[in-house]
Computed example of a mutant assay.
Amino acid sequence: MKKMRLIVMTVAAMLLLLSLYTLKEGWPAKSAETFSKAVIQQGSSGKDVVELQGRLRFLGYYDGKIDGNFDAKTKKAVTWFQWKFGMKSDGVVGGKTKLKLWEATKSWKPTAADVPGGESKSSAPGAAGKTSGGNTGAGSNVDKSNKLGLSANDIKIMANAVYGEARGEPYEGQVAVAAVILNRLQSPEFPNSITGVIFQRLAFTAVADGQIWLTPNDKAKRAVEDAINGWDPSDEALYYFNPDTATSKWIWSRTQIKRIGKHIFCM
């Protein structure tokens, strides 16, 4: 009887430790459908790495071959992604990194180019390269309907950013926020991809407080469309801030252009 009780207690303790480890490492059910629970790092290979490379390339962080081999180039892409998303940039893909990557690439749909050996001239690294708008990413995901050649994921994450940053602002102010993102994209002072601009460290409050993942409304989506089509109420601003909440002395030193709603737009 004592032996049986000991076995039960041991099993219960193991299950408790496993559940705590799972919570700590962030193995959510949804990302678990995409990745296994194995930690992925340099030297790893297989389906998890194929998935990792495909999603990183979709976001513009990886421009190598999808071959399922976690090499130095893949590690560099992982560390860049981790840094942009405010995580420990060690190049090791655990539960937290998998969750963030899954959240950022919900709209990604693998194509033939995302399968080892499925590369073609039109989808090979370097063929997609920079679009006319300065964006990088897989050519198969480019939305030809917009003038800048932004991908569907670029447009979606811009709408998320506009909604998270300015949903309480007048419509003109929401378009202005979208325009600032595009202005940064085309400026040599900022990253050359939409995701790079939006997730640049400390760039947007909505990223820092998690509001970037709120579902945008139609108004935010229209604001992005208007900005892409050339409307820039910000007058080519690269920054904006709310004077009621801004604590940075640096932002107050920027040349102010105009005020729309609660935001001051500046260079």
Rank of each mutant, 00 (worst) to 15 (best):
I181Q: 12
E172K: 06
L17R: 00
K96G: 01
D209H: 02
A29P: 03
G46F: 06
L23Y: 13
P110T: 10
K258A: 02
T22N: 12
Q174P: 03
D218M: 05
L202A: 03
R57V: 04
V50K: 08
L23H: 07
G149P: 06
N192H: 15
Y163W: 05
I66P: 10
V93N: 05
D232W: 10
K109T: 14
P216R: 00
G95P: 00
L202Q: 09
V39D: 04
W213D: 14
A124V: 07
K130I: 06
G139Y: 02
H263M: 07
T105D: 07
W102F: 14
E165I: 04
T131H: 00
R167V: 02
C266N: 12
T205N: 10
M9Y: 08
R222G: 07
T215M: 07
N146E: 05
G46I: 04
K144D: 00
N160Q: 14
I155P: 01
H263N: 02
Q211E: 05
V177Y: 06
P170F: 00
W80N: 12
G86R: 08
A176Q: 05
P28T: 14
S248K: 09
V8T: 09
R259P: 06
I260T: 02
K221I: 08
A246E: 12
A220R: 06
K121T: 07
Y21T: 05
A38K: 15
R254D: 02
G261T: 02
V115C: 04
V49S: 13
P191M: 10
K121M: 12
A104N: 08
T105G: 03
L202G: 03
K109D: 10
S193N: 11
L18W: 12
K130Y: 14
T97I: 06
D90S: 07
P233D: 07
G168T: 11
T10V: 11
K2E: 13
Q82K: 09
W252D: 09
D71E: 11
T111I: 00
G164R: 05
D143N: 04
S151F: 01
